[in-house]
Amino acid sequence: MVPLSWYLTLAAALFAVGLFGVLARRNAIAILMGIELMLNAVNLNLLAFWRYLWSDNLTGVVFIIVVLAVAAAEVAVGLALIISIYRRRSTVVVEEIDLLRW
């Protein structure tokens, strides 16, 4: 039997790792990867709660489906933006994308 806290701990660690990727990576695509990790940590949490606390209620599963849809949309738009920026400014380093900075 796997206790619920194991899943929660793993999800917390995964979330923190993803957050580190978001905060520290210079490449925009790598930041997207970090975001994906964070979303997966959330999904893991949701499913664990569903399985351990409310398995007669479908809200958790539906929530995961919505998160998946949002993730797919986010990746599509995000990558499109990155490639568009890459075409115009020849960079994907977020620190160099500073046209609007003072």
């Binding site: 978001v22 520290a24 930041i31 977020v94 500073d98 609007l100 900075r101 003072w102």
Partner: peptide, 14 residues
């Protein structure tokens, strides 16, 4: 103070 980098803002915020 305004670096324009969201990562910095996020770190500070967190």
């Amino acid at each position: 103070i305004q670096t324009g980098r969201i990562q910095t803002y996020l770190i500070v915020g967190i």
